[in-house]
Design a protein around this nucleic acid. Sequence first.
DNA 1: GTCATAAGTGGACGCACCGTCCAGTTAATT
DNA 2: AATTAACTGGACGGTGCGTCCACTTATGAC
Lengths: 171, 171
Amino acid sequence: MLAAARRLFASRDPRAVTMDDIAREAGVGRGTLYRRYPDTVSIAVALLDAHERELQEKLLHGEPPLGPGAAPAERMAAFYTAMVELLDQHIDLVLGAEVGDARFTGGAYGFWRVHVRSLLVEADLADPDALVDILLAPLAPEAFRFQKETRHLGPDRITSALHLLARGVFR
Amino acid sequence: MLAAARRLFASRDPRAVTMDDIAREAGVGRGTLYRRYPDTVSIAVALLDAHERELQEKLLHGEPPLGPGAAPAERMAAFYTAMVELLDQHIDLVLGAEVGDARFTGGAYGFWRVHVRSLLVEADLADPDALVDILLAPLAPEAFRFQKETRHLGPDRITSALHLLARGVFR
DNA sequence: GTCATAAGTGGACGCACCGTCCAGTTAATT
DNA sequence: AATTAACTGGACGGTGCGTCCACTTATGAC
């Protein structure tokens, strides 16, 4: 069922994938699908979960500069690099998982938020609570998709620009 | 009809307002509504248009620091201030107008993009094409709404944080 | 091995919204 | 007054949603 969903998310606009589509592709009835997942968002989240946990683990206990030990500015830049990589590899799943408000209500955003906020606090910057969501905004999947698909920017250029941002904010 | 739509956008989640709702509230049939507007997005855009044009005019021919004459960093900060004000006053309309991809395909985003890009060029910063969308990302209505409604941040704090961003990027 | 109970399955159902279409009405023109 | 044009509002078919339930399959007791 998850494999069927992954195929569909990859093969067309993830936001247009319906529960019927997934059920049909998986060869099961709608009721069976609904028994396990309440909507397409939670299916995309389930598919994305492993990758997000992996990054979260590296942020908490990995090597610097992603993990603890490096200066906040370095860690922020490394975080941007890792997030762009994750977005680039799984943009279809992230688009499926973070449609509309789901981006903010899902657990992953909370994790990124706590992490970046702690970096801001460590760097002793003014009003981390206001800055944190601003620094995370460029990682919104819709924004990334626009840069990638419409503006034809590669992950490297996006990452470089984000590094400029990180360097600018973290004096 | 526009008045009815404005009432509805203001009174509930703008993304949940349907064409039937607006037609009923306006006291006309669905067909009549569709004759003038193809979807709810274009209705929200029509309501927002006047306010956006006003700001665009100020950017092009107004007094500095919003208009021409001030340093790019100053103009960027002023632009952030004005955009936060616009978002704060009309968040319901912007949410209705920029749902999903509409944010990027609508004409307004293109205008903001050209403006900010020209400031980046004037300041001689690296890769304006990559930076511009990153600097505009925090102005996405979903992000602003999250900061305002969920994080309970006032426009002043958001503006200050954005100024920090502008100052950081524009050396 | 048989039977009762539980867990699981898949499609049918009613609902909401979409976008189109058209018969009827109203206004404009000569 | 008559002809034409423009407008109106609801009916229609289509799609996706989420629930519900008759049926099948697995589990465990005797």
